[in-house]
């Protein structure tokens, strides 16, 4: 069954001209990649553009694809590079007010647009939208290096070794960045610590 095949096998199938294989890959990865980009650039429009560009690069490079590394490593390397390039193009990276545009160079909406609406899980219903905005804001306060590591580890469940491959730095550096990120977020979210204590840890 094509749906059960590994990413690498599907990519090889697409390399042989099987478009259905790419469709499965896209359906499998578009959401996590999009959320990674969205949390990184904090602009939905920009995130969609970068998502499209990331998969377009996959399409264009399909002929040269070789099964040397995990497909996800390759895909997130592309996505991460796009995010870093985009971030470097941005003039200012400051903590935004909820009403101010996320990026001064584009009119891509506000932080409220980034934060999800009513799709909260039932056990998380108590977590207010304000907390989510605060979380997003805290993420934006992280440096790019810390943010990308944190996003990959927390939201994509990538092992540190794979993150080091994507980012291109030693594993220990990745761990250091992760620890810095957690330290910083802990300080940023100090006010929600009591609420966090009430949350069941998964």
């Amino acid at each position: 069954m094509l749906q059960d095949e590994a990413d690498e096998a599907l990519m090889l199938r697409y390399q042989q001209g099987e478009v259905r294989a790419f469709e499965i890959l896209l359906n499998r990865h578009r959401k996590p990649v999009f959320n990674f980009i969205l949390r990184f650039v904090q602009s939905r429009e920009l995130a969609e553009d970068l998502l499209q560009e990331a998969f377009l690069r996959v399409i264009r490079s399909a002929g040269k694809y070789k099964q040397q590394a995990k497909f996800t490593t390759w895909l997130y390397t592309i996505a991460r590079n796009l995010c870093v390039d985009q971030s470097r193009r941005a003039k200012h990276r400051k903590a935004k007010s909820l009403d101010s545009p996320l990026s001064s160079s584009d009119g891509s909406g506000t932080l409220l647009d980034v934060v999800a609406g009513n799709e909260l899980p039932s056990d998380r219903a108590a977590v207010s939208k304000e907390i989510q905005i605060k979380l997003q804001s805290a993420l934006a306060e992280l440096s790019e290096e810390q943010r990308e590591v944190f996003l990959m580890r927390e939201f994509l469940d990538m092992p540190f070794k794979q993150i080091s491959e994507v980012v291109g730095v030693p594993e220990n550096t990745v761990k250091s960045r992760m620890r810095y990120a957690l330290q910083k977020l802990r300080l940023e979210l100090e006010e929600f610590s009591d609420m966090a204590k009430a949350l069941p840890y998964k």
């Binding site: 959401k31 999009f34 377009l56 399409i59 999800a116 977590v127 979210l189």
Partner: peptide
């Protein structure tokens, strides 16, 4: 651990279908 608990349940968003359809057409 508490910080991680806070981020664990950050809701995820879906990319628009237009992007998906465009990508499929390009593929």
């Amino acid at each position: 651990q508490r910080v991680r608990s806070l981020f664990r349940d950050m809701p995820e968003q879906e990319p628009s279908d237009a992007v998906t359809n465009r990508l499929l057409a390009m593929a």
